[in-house]
Design a protein around this nucleic acid. Sequence first.
DNA 1: TTGCAGTCAATATC
DNA 2: GATATTGACTGCAA
Length: 545
Amino acid sequence: GSVSDMLSRPKPWSKLTQKGREPFIRMQLWLNGELGQGVLPVQGQPQGPVLHSVTSLPDPLQQGCVSSESTPKTSASCSPAPESPMSSSESVKSLTELVQQPCPTIETSKEGKPPEPSDPPASDSQPTTPLPLSGHSALSIQELVAMSPELDTYGITKRVKEVLTDNNLGQRLFGETILGLTQGSVSDLLARPKPWHKLSLKGREPFVRMQLWLNDPNNVEKLMDMKRMEKKAYMKRRHSSVSDSQPCEPPSVGIDYSQGASPQPQHQLKKPRVVLAPEEKEALKRAYQQKPYPSPKTIEELATQLNLKTSTVINWFHNYRSRIRRELFIEEIQAGSQGQAGASDSPSARSGRAAPSSEGDSCDGVEATEAEEPGGNTVATKSQGGPAEVAAAPADREEATQPAEKAKAKPLSSGTPGQDDGEDAGRPRPPPEGLANAPAPVPNLAAPAAGEDAATSATAPAMATEAPGAARAGPAERSSALPSTSAPATAPARRPSSLQSLFGLPEAAGARDNPVRKKKAANLNSIIHRLEKAASREEPIEWEF
DNA sequence: TTGCAGTCAATATC
DNA sequence: GATATTGACTGCAA
């Protein structure tokens, strides 16, 4: 719809916002042949991200390519003759050269504003966001992201971590300066990188930036310089504030923002962060095990029973699903890189990193999944329960996903099945029950009733069948993979070698994770999702608590 | 409307 | 003080 509208009623450049200009830039690039069809599957990718940083570029940078000129000029200004469709390789080559230059990033931010510790990069897309590239880089980074060969995200993060550690550089500085991300995001990214093919274009950007950053050893030096400057600035401020006290720093925490120009009384608006109690988490996890995609009604009930806001419950499920998925990715990667040691190794590896997480909640799913398929049991337990059926298809015990948690739960408590909610033993409720003792009103999601079963069982077989071959179609993957799969899959193939040199990569790296695993995971997600969908549609039976 | 990706930012932990 | 965790939010797509 947007495309149609845009094509039929294009707004004049001058009336477009930066964001609004993006599509035109893309079109121009596409017309120029700089963006091969498959190369920039913008569509596949959740909108705009690609040019996101372009829009957020500091003006000076923008001028490079995304100038006030009419969009069409854009590419022209960046790259040679607009008419002579620069071959991707050529364009890439030029980009490469640009990129290879010592990244101006640091200087930029440095000059622009002394890295004031306090300055919260305006909420908007990091106006101060350092971009590792100069002028043209604005677009270049986008292009690079779109055209880059498959990168080994795991390897990149590993290297980055090493470099940061070796040089005693913090995630915050690195994130804000090089990636334009906050410390938390950087930490998450470094600890749990998603495989390249599962990343959207936007999601790939940080990795490309990291790779570019790694390519130039000088960058480390620059970052260290920045660190020094930051420290200096901090000391200065500290001193000054100590002497003249007041105005500056009381702001400390949340006030930074208000100072800017927010007319609203932010302090009051600030709502306290919700912190779920362990019992609540356990309860939610159990609910998740039973139903990763709870119906609104179920959510409502959960919220009521746990005395939480429904939005909190919803968010929790979203986050949990998402994070479990990521854990799974890591598993894949690790499993893949660690000499396919086989499933066996994963558990340990897992425990190594994920486990640490407190109750290891985050990994729950993963572990389970991995450990997986305790499958067998699931089947048994779930007798007729939805997923259970699926299990029927040996190959796909994947469904274990949900049960997944179980594995994890185990440690928690070899709980007695059925306890708290007076669950009936026979119930499919995942053995994990760790929470048995769960003090809280842990809702017990009973297994779907007959009705659902019917539905599920009906579907299951079918899916099972298709599983092997169509594995990748799994929903989980589907969504995330769609864009990536389609694009990257093809792109790398015909990608100019220059790109490889640019990224200093031997080639598509690691992502070649264990296909079997991938398949299983995809399959699993697919099955679960469908089952849930089907089950919820049925409605007849609600989970019992 | 729902689910997801990507993030932020508060808070917990090391 | 740095890093890890996690609830919430934004923007999209289907």
